[in-house]
Design a protein around this nucleic acid. Structure first.
Length: 456
RNA sequence: GUGGUUGUAGCUCAGUCGGUUAGAGCGUCGGAUUGUGGUUCCGAAGGUCGCGGGUUCGAAUCCCGUCUCCCACCCCA
């Protein structure tokens, strides 16, 4: 039989046990905080109908959606001559399903389908993989996990403050102490676009200034020029973006700028409201930064926008989110505003690894390895194993009798902290021997003493 | 999707100008060691040199294609 290469698709990963233990620690931490803030779990299918996904992420986004071929002889159903098709016309005929690209659109679909039966406002969290046909890079994969929390059915800005607090608490719990939550408001950016007389260029402006911290002011200005924004207007934009001051000073400055700009003023007022809630909710707000240059590329955001950065590690953002005025309109359900955030678990992992934050997470799963001393003692060892498991102690037995060194090595490899030996001598006296694998100390005792020792 | 880069044992990497049987360390396995591992010593296994084609008397080495890794762009977590 021909040998098949044991490779996996580009940008995907196997998660070995020692990696997965750490990933699960991240997911568990996030999940616990989500629940503590009142968010309920949701899962949706890996695949969605293609028309649910297309057009939601811009032209670039459509290109990055993984499509699934129809079943059966899909080519025979193509209308007209195969050779004269474009990729787009062919795709729509041979594919009607695709892998989900994010968790927000499937959530919107879910809410649209079940809104009449859901408690409103509906708060859900969702931790599942998503797929993008992007080229991999550091911290970028084709299959990766998103951890989203959203609340829909309300435009209360209390949730903006709540999600900010949720972000900070989670990163504190994970040990990423220098994580910074950047906050801005799309209406302020809209105001700026109106101020310079180019409201139709909002998306271009956002895409360009979103790169500010990555490529610098000069490069952003050059990009704005390419995108059809005159240098004089760009200078006007930067005059506002570069304003130095604390929250209150920034807001006061913007108010004077937006004197004749209702949209911009609304943005300022929303920020004021969010900050007032935050003042009640959080005593320490060091990790929150009102950043006028925060823009975010996605166009469905209409109000507050968030992004989490870790300044000490060279990697993209660790999370992001924002408020959207209309989540479900495309599915025919009106008046469903919402706000949500997302954690990038894969990048959080890389940051924690780089900072050495996994040291304190125990790698072991099994607590006791029961040594399989000899054929004569296997039965007694199995009985002890059953007792340990009945006492809720994670334990396992070595499969083949004999060769103590090999059994100890196995315990080492799996980071098992204790071994339990029942040899001929112990069996006769009705005892067992418990060995601490890191200190090497061992003592003979009764099994129920072992249970007490290890349960400590 | 565009451009650059990388690929040799399970892992990290040598391999000269194209030349006989492709090496090392670590790891694995066996033994020293039939009641004690993480130390030591001895020994062994393990390779379609990413894959496919081409040039050549001869290719890990040169050429083309392709896949993958990493990097940049686009975009994003």
């Amino acid at each position: 039989m021909a040998k098949i290469e044991a490779s996996i698709p580009k940008g995907t990963r196997d998660f070995a046990p020692e990696v997965l233990v750490r990933r699960e620690y991240i997911f568990d931490t996030i999940k616990k905080v989500f629940r503590k803030y009142g968010y309920q779990p949701l899962e949706t299918p890996a695949m969605e109908n293609l028309n649910v996904l297309t057009g939601k992420y811009g032209e670039e986004g459509d290109r990055l959606i993984f499509k699934i071929l129809n079943s059966g002889d899909f080519l025979s159903k193509v209308k007209g001559d195969l050779g004269s098709q474009t990729s787009a016309s062919l795709t729509s005929q041979i594919s009607e399903k695709a892998l989900r690209y994010d968790l927000t659109v499937p959530f919107a679909r879910f809410v649209s389908k079940y809104h009449s039966t859901l408690p409103m406002p509906f708060k859900r969290y969702q931790i599942q993989p998503v797929w993008r046909a992007d080229n991999p890079q550091n911290g970028r994969f084709r299959e990766f996990f998103q951890c989203d929390a959203d609340v829909v059915g309300t435009d209360s800005l209390i949730y903006e403050a709540e999600l900010t607090a949720l972000y900070l608490e989670t990163f504190q719990k994970l040990g990423i102490r220098d994580a910074v939550v950047l906050i801005n408001n799309r209406k302020i950016l809209t105001g700026i676009a109106e101020l310079i007389g180019m409201p139709d260029k909002l998306t271009e402006i956002c895409v360009a200034i979103d790169k500010l911290d990555k490529i610098g002011e000069d490069a952003v200005k050059a990009e704005m020029d390419r995108r059809g924004i005159e240098p004089a207007k760009t200078d006007q934009i930067f005059e506002i973006l570069n304003f130095q001051g604390n929250r209150e000073e920034k807001l006061a400055y913007l108010k004077t700028k937006f004197e004749n700009c209702p949209t911009g003023l609304t943005g300022v007022k929303e920020m004021e409201e969010v900050f007032s809630y935050l003042n009640s909710l959080l005593s320490n707000q060091n990790g929150i930064l009102f950043d006028l240059s925060l823009a975010r590329g996605l166009d469905y955001y209409t109000g507050t926008i968030f992004e989490v950065k870790c300044p000490s590690v060279k990697i993209g953002s660790l999370g992001g989110g924002g408020r959207y005025a209309d989540l479900t309109g495309i599915f025919g359900v009106k008046d469903m505003p919402g706000v949500g955030i997302s954690f990038g678990a894969d990048r959080i992992y890389l940051v924690m690894e780089e900072k050495g934050l996994f040291q304190n997470i125990p790698l072991e799963s099994t607590q006791i390895l029961v040594v399989n001393f000899s054929e004569a003692t296997t039965a007694a060892s199995l009985a002890a194993l059953a007792t340990l498991r009945a006492a809720n102690i994670a334990s396992e037995i070595y499969p083949t009798p004999g060769k103590l060194p090999r059994q100890f090595k196995y315990a080492d490899r799996k980071n098992i902290p204790w071994t339990l030996i029942i040899g001929e001598d112990e069996m006769k006296s009705g005892n067992c021997m418990l060995k601490n694998m890191s200190s090497g100390e061992q003592s003979t005792c009764k099994l129920d003493h072992v249970i007490r020792m290890v349960s400590l």
